[in-house]
């Protein structure tokens, strides 16, 4: 499995016109023949694109997990689909971080629950009283 798009310097979403021009300009006759058969026919291209998507996903996973030099990842596939390792944080570490953050938030809430509820009750009462007084004042003024 080779990445024909990469070898022809195309993007996987290239339209048929771009593909045909790239194929005619390709100097390697074997590659030209392969690209004509695979990318030139819509059904072949669909099937190839599906596998291409899966294999490039696997290439990305391998890059993230440090498996780009695995024993099962060799030959054309490894040549064409290996990505440079990126600095994305491990998903598991991120999950642990987020859970601990959520836990600390929860603990804060539990600790200050009483005083916070009191404050909330007081502000709500004050707001209602203010609104009531205001409407009363307005009613007196109009009379």
């Amino acid at each position: 499995m080779r990445d024909l798009y990469q070898r022809l310097a195309l993007s996987p979403s290239a339209n048929s016109h771009q593909i045909s021009s790239a194929v005619t300009h390709c100097a390697n006759s074997a590659l030209r023949q392969d690209a004509e058969t695979v990318l030139g026919v819509a059904e072949h291209r669909d099937a190839y694109n599906k596998l291409h998507k899966t294999v490039s996903d696997i290439g990305q996973l391998r890059a993230r997990l440090g498996l780009t030099h695995g024993a099962h990842w060799q030959g054309d596939v490894a040549n064409d689909f290996s990505l440079p390792p990126d600095n994305a944080i491990s998903r598991h570490d991120e999950l642990v971080d987020r859970v601990s953050y959520a836990v600390s938030l929860y603990n804060h809430w539990r600790r200050f629950k009483g005083p916070l509820l009191l404050v909330a009750l007081f502000t709500a009462g004050a707001g209602i009283g203010l609104a009531f007084g205001f409407t009363l004042g307005l009613g007196l003024g109009t009379r």
Partner: peptide, 18 residues
Amino acid sequence: LANHYILRFLADLLNIAP
């Protein structure tokens, strides 16, 4: 075909020799 590559990925992940 896709499972060919997925199985091999899992084997690499689980540290299992070819």
